[in-house]
Nucleic acid binder design. Structure first.
Lengths: 224, 224
DNA sequence: GGAGTTAAGTGACCCCAGGTCATCCGTCAA
DNA sequence: TTGACGGATGACCTGGGGTCACTTAACTCC
């Protein structure tokens, strides 16, 4: 029998089969994501994640040993999805691209991915602080694979790029995404301050700046 | 009379004159800095800062309303000092520079400034989260002034740079510094993982990568 | 389909760190 | 010398991450 559910929940009240565990894990990730999108990492409480899934707080810790582990797992999913999206677009069609075409493709692939980039910006400073070596290793292993595929595609689109260039370029884009996301996605207090007219030089439009920076980087590599 | 000091402290046991208050404020900032350099923002406890200055915990909160305010004040100092250093080097001598010369100058000015860049990387995600509008405004106002001076100097060294270019270039460098610092300055757990030989593409040498990225950016602007 | 076994789920509890405040007392002016 | 101002103190409060002894759903075996 498929057992009575806890009040308000769907499915079995206890996840004993692997697929049920996986489903519950997904529920927790979705809840964490929704809460994070509405606020910030610091403001999301594990108790809230539990409440949103109608589970007890202790249960959340059965699936993720720490708050950071929960969010690193979420980042893991989003990162994989984003790389797939980007690589798909890079592989779509053929022939060489201009620097600007490529920059637009990368920047466009990040539109609507604020959750991903916000988490990416938190990765080194917050998410990798309270997590097992094993989880970190799995995560980075996955990044490595996706990066490798991207590097190959980049070289197809940009014939002037050496293999070494491609790796370095990806690291620089990573740095730019992290940095620009932080600059664009600011605390309410800072937002208020930046509204002042003369603060314009400190305001950042994520997509526009990223496109500009990547274009310039590629032109620099090309001009070398 | 200059009053007996609290056990182990030098100077008056109570700061009543403005200069004494300022000195005590400095002591607290120095303590916070030393502790941060040895560990991380999360690991520095306000109680430790108090202990290091031989003051009570409550006293720290007389000088800084929150932990974030304390560290933002520290960043404020370090940022001012760094801009002064950079602007000094940019103003030293005259004539135009190559892209690489300028990149080396910027990157070199950040050597030994890990504390500054680490805090910079924390600014938007952590430090501006629990701070008054007023402190944020003062901080950003100061950045604006320093940035303006830097922009002028940049245009002198790089004749191909428009005023708008200069502002955007500084924002991009800011993003790169933030992002690269996070990538280079990793948690112990991640450090262990990145030691694995095949993880090389994920390892970042801050100065080298920053120099490369800035050089490429400038060449891109020049080639336009 | 009842008894026994396994392990997911629960929530009261612990711990710790940021932040508060009633009180104390050093400092200084009168 | 003394009164009062205000800086310093540390016991205390609070809230959120994380734990664990216990409960009970779900499966197994007869």
């Amino acid at each position: 029998m498929v057992g009575a559910s806890a009040p308000g929940r769907v499915g079995p009240s206890r996840a004993r089969r692997d697929e049920d565990k996986e489903a519950r894990r997904r529920e927790l990730l979705d809840a964490a994501r929704a809460l994070f999108e509405a606020t910030s990492f610091a403001q999301v409480k594990m108790a809230d994640v539990a409440a949103r899934t109608r589970l007890a707080k202790g249960t959340v810790f059965l699936y993720f040993p720490t708050k950071e582990a929960l969010f690193l797992a979420l980042l893991d999913d989003l990162l994989t999805a984003w790389f797939a999206k980007l690589n798909g677009r890079l592989a779509d069609g053929d022939g060489a691209w201009t620097a600007e075409q490529l920059a637009r493709t990368v920047a466009a692939s990040l539109e609507g991915e604020e959750t991903f980039t916000r988490l990416l910006a938190l990765m080194q400073t917050v998410l990798e602080q309270n997590v097992t070596v094993e989880q970190t290793r799995r995560f980075k292993e996955r990044v490595l694979v996706a990066m490798g595929a991207t590097a190959v595609l980049l070289q197809q689109r940009l014939p002037f790029l050496t293999a070494e260039d491609a790796g370095q370029f990806i690291r620089h884009v990573h740095a730019l995404v992290t940095g620009l996301r932080q600059m664009a996605d600011i605390a309410p207090v800072a937002r208020e301050v930046l509204t002042l007219p003369h603060m314009a030089p400190l305001r950042v439009d994520f997509t526009a700046e990223l496109t500009a920076a990547i274009t310039t980087l590629l032109r620099g590599l090309q001009a070398r």
